[in-house]
């Protein structure tokens, strides 16, 4: 009898917690989007039981017994944007594929909230469907990275499974890739509120730490943090072994040279396809430019030829001048 009473209370509370009138806020999903999402995900309606709160930036918390209700902000970490979710790699998933079905109870109890979370390797490891992404090697690199030594760090600190997209190998514009990837790092390293959740270290000022870098803004816009802060990996698409800060690349010619490091990192995907075919050198592609690396082999030979030609003409001229001087 007591159990039934409890269940009734839970149902009452569940009914009382409904999203703030999202239509008034103008953020209700478009009907056509809902149709599209239902096509993408057969669990759409099931997921709405979670997203009715977690898919809204605001929700209304009501105590039906006392007749009190308040509009609350959904805590950012627990907010799932439907558009991003149904556009991400996990778009066909039900919430309960990864989360406990005990979350149906509200308020969610502490034990449920502290459930162990899956890591990428738990689903993608040792599966031939994902063999090309080599999650096993990613796991090894991650375990050897500085991030692995941080308590409570996990894949999700950088890759939000609710919005994650395969970006690096698919994006057409390198600038977009740089922005996307750097935002991952800056979400903690330039946001002390997030950073202090994981470490006791003092706040990092990314700008002043990189003051030594000439044209700092251009570097930040053009290359990813991981270009210098990870160890190059040939076996995975994106290096995951984040190095201690004293091992970060500070030697300009690692990138600014014919054998640029960027070939094995940022331009890995494009360069594999276009290497050797472009007029603008094998290393950096037409859309990019890196001093010291953007060399054109044909122009190089042409300039050498012109220079040697000029020297030869001067040499011949000197020769005849000497002959003439001797005849005098």
């Amino acid at each position: 009898m007591k159990t039934l009473k409890n269940r009734g209370l839970i149902v009452l509370i569940l009914l009382a917690v409904y999203p703030f009138n999202s239509q008034l806020l103008g953020i209700a999903p478009d009907d056509s989007l809902v149709v599209k999402w239902k096509d993408i995900n057969v669990f759409y309606d099931d997921n709405e039981r979670c997203l009715i709160c977690h898919g809204e930036e605001y929700y209304t918390l009501s105590d039906t017994v006392a007749g009190v209700s308040q509009i609350r902000n959904m805590f950012q970490d627990y907010f799932v944007n439907r558009e991003d979710y149904y556009d991400g790699v996990h778009k066909s998933f039900s919430c309960t594929d990864c989360h406990s079905s005990d979350f149906i109870r509200f308020p969610h109890d502490v034990a449920t909230r502290l459930e162990p979370r899956y890591a990428c390797i738990d689903c993608h490891g040792y599966d031939e469907n994902y063999a090309h992404l080599n999650f096993e090697e990613i796991e090894v690199e991650y375990n050897n990275s500085t991030h692995a030594s941080v308590e409570n760090f996990s894949c999700w600190k950088c890759h939000d499974p609710h919005s994650y997209k395969l970006f690096a190998s698919e994006v057409a514009d390198v600038g977009e890739l740089v922005l996307y990837d750097n935002n991952m790092c800056l979400a903690c390293h330039a946001n002390f509120t997030e950073f202090r959740l994981l470490t006791d270290r003092e706040e990092i000022n990314v700008v002043s730490k990189h003051e030594w870098l000439p044209n700092q803004v251009l570097h930040f816009e053009s290359v990813r943090c991981i270009e210098c802060h990870t160890q190059i990996s040939d076996s995975i698409l994106v290096a995951h072994m984040v190095l201690p800060k004293d091992q970060a690349v500070k030697n300009c010619t690692e990138c600014h040279s014919a054998n640029s490091r960027l070939m094995s990192t940022l331009y890995k995907f494009e360069s594999k396809e276009k290497r050797g075919n472009g007029f603008f050198n094998s290393i950096i592609l037409n859309r990019s430019y890196v001093i010291g690396a953007s060399r054109n082999i044909y122009l190089g030979y042409l300039s050498l030829l012109i220079f040697l030609g000029v020297l030869s003409v001067i040499g011949i001229h000197i020769f005849f001048r000497v002959i003439k001087a001797k005849r005098k």
Binding site: P214, T253, H256, A258, N259, I291, G292, R295
Partner: peptide, 21 residues
Amino acid sequence: SLQFSGQDEPFVLVSFKTAVS
């Protein structure tokens, strides 16, 4: 030095960082 920068390049007379400034 900037154009042909690199560790084993024959035309580099000044280090990259010095060459930039």
